[in-house]
Design a binder for these strands. Structure first.
Lengths: 206, 206
DNA sequence: AAATTGTGTTTTGTATACAAAACACAATTA
DNA sequence: TAATTGTGTTTTGTATACAAAACACAATTT
């Protein structure tokens, strides 16, 4: 048997990936024995992983019926973006108050490769964008805030792996947020972070 | 055996109560077999309940070591209050935008019994306060927002079941929030909701 | 034909069994 | 005496077993 301290961890990651890449489709029922057989584990650690995914809004449990891959309707996507506006907005505020040079440096590093390019590699920019938004939370060093920010998982599931808006539009917005943080302008940092997400929300919701 | 569809649900509620009322103390290790024997259930549904509590920040798992009742230090309390400011602030904003009479009515109902009293029953006011803050979130009808607002659990654990500030101080603040919502003033509603929590945070953190 | 009932199968929820890791503490060594 | 090793116990993590609920679908009734 393989070495491990906690089998549910790799199962959790694997399932998350399966949901992301479509091996498990939206709304699909997750038959526990099938998956446990597929992954070569028992139902016990699988259950643990599924519960973690349920708490991240990726999976939905209906008692006595089973676990299902969550499928999001328009209202839920709207609501999730509202949450993101609250969380990321606050994160930007916290970072602006911190005024830590190392923080600014890391944030800037995300988009440095694109600032001088005229033709932006979409794939690379998508990864940078994801990284930036996750970093914004992590750098606050606020563990509870990080804990409630699990919607990043859902983010690209919603849009089918792509960006909601083109880099030409968002690159500048990202730098506006970073600059406000650098200048220690908390109100502006929060405002820009929110507007950035709000614009995508409005676009997704019509 | 007792009728049920999901045994982990009552176990979850029982454990939450045990943490609240001190039957399980901060930092205490939760020995699974002990608790499962105490509650007359097996470890399987108990584990399910413990995982739910872990995701609510009430319990902490250290792999291969066990589950422990989470004990919060000053920084964590501070960080949780930052989260509450973000979440409740946004909730107040959403409700203000909604401008739903029924919403305002329910919020007002929380504190109506106290508005004319000169001597406020502390116990009743504490319950009303809890209800108000929970209601603020629920009435947004934003399920993801509700999902990330599990810190209410922790709130009175932190303060040892009491209020951080006296009713004489907070009652007026509550009405300011409600009035802003009633008037559809989103910016003010959010601002007042935040300041209300911020004041307690500052008090707790010195 | 549509609705209902019955029956065998699947799947969940719970209990239990068991190996391996963590722990406690006495015996041993430096 | 302080540190280390060894040994028996406890506890976790995982697998498995089993009852009851959900399901699928054929047979029966209206």
């Amino acid at each position: 048997m393989i070495e491990h301290t906690d089998l549910s961890q790799p199962i959790y990651l694997r399932l998350k990936d399966m949901i992301r890449n479509g091996e498990l489709k939206q709304g699909e029922k997750i038959v526990q024995e099938k998956i446990s057989e597929l992954l070569g584990v028992s139902r016990t650690p699988l259950m643990k992983a599924l519960l973690a995914l349920e708490n991240e809004y990726l999976v939905e449990s209906i008692p006595r019926r089973g676990m299902f891959v969550r499928s999001l309707d328009e209202k839920e996507i709207f609501d999730i973006y509202i949450c993101r506006e609250a969380i990321e907005g606050m994160a930007a505020r916290v970072l602006a108050i911190k005024k830590d040079e190392a923080v600014v440096k890391q944030l800037k590093a995300c988009f440095m490769p694109f600032s001088s390019q005229s033709n932006i590699d979409l794939d690379a920019y998508t990864r940078a964008d994801e990284h930036f938004h996750s970093l914004l939370i992590k750098l606050t060093n606020n563990a509870p805030l990080d804990k409630i920010y699990f919607f990043s998982n859902i983010h690209d599931k919603v849009t089918g792996h792509g960006l909601v808006r083109p880099p030409e539009e968002t690159l500048h917005e990202h730098f506006k947020i970073i600059n406000a943080i650098e200048n220690g302008n908390a109100d502006q940092a929060e405002k820009y972070a929110r507007e950035h997400i709000e614009k995508s929300r409005i676009l997704l919701n019509k």
